[in-house]
């Protein structure tokens, strides 16, 4: 396997979708090729960082507004059957 072949399969390898028969060839290449090994490691780190940091906390003031908007809309839809601030009867 060449570096070029590896690049072609990089997505699938990183996602764990690579055909097992290619997996050993891929890993063998990684053992002998430091630049490719570093690329694979750093791609994985890149994805992990974005995944971890991509979880955005919902701002609490917005959360309160959202819930009261939804409650209001719910009441309108139910024809005012819902008690304000409480569950539907």
């Amino acid at each position: 396997m060449t570096c070029k072949d590896l690049l072609k399969m990089l997505n699938d390898y990183v996602d764990g979708d690579v055909d097992p028969s290619f997996c050993s060839a891929f890993e063998e290449h990684l053992r002998d090729c430091d630049p490719c090994k570093v690329v694979v490691d750093t791609i994985r780190n890149t994805i992990r960082l974005y995944k971890d940091e991509g979880v955005v906390e919902i701002p609490i003031l917005f959360r309160e507004r959202l819930h009261s908007t939804l409650r209001r809309r719910w009441q309108e839809k139910q024809g005012g059957q819902t008690r304000p601030g409480g569950p539907a009867r």
Partner: peptide
Amino acid sequence: GDFAAFEELVSRHEGRVYSIAMN
């Protein structure tokens, strides 16, 4: 017609929905 049930669904999924929108 149970708003408490709907609100609980919102609470469970609002973080993810906001995160998708923000991203």
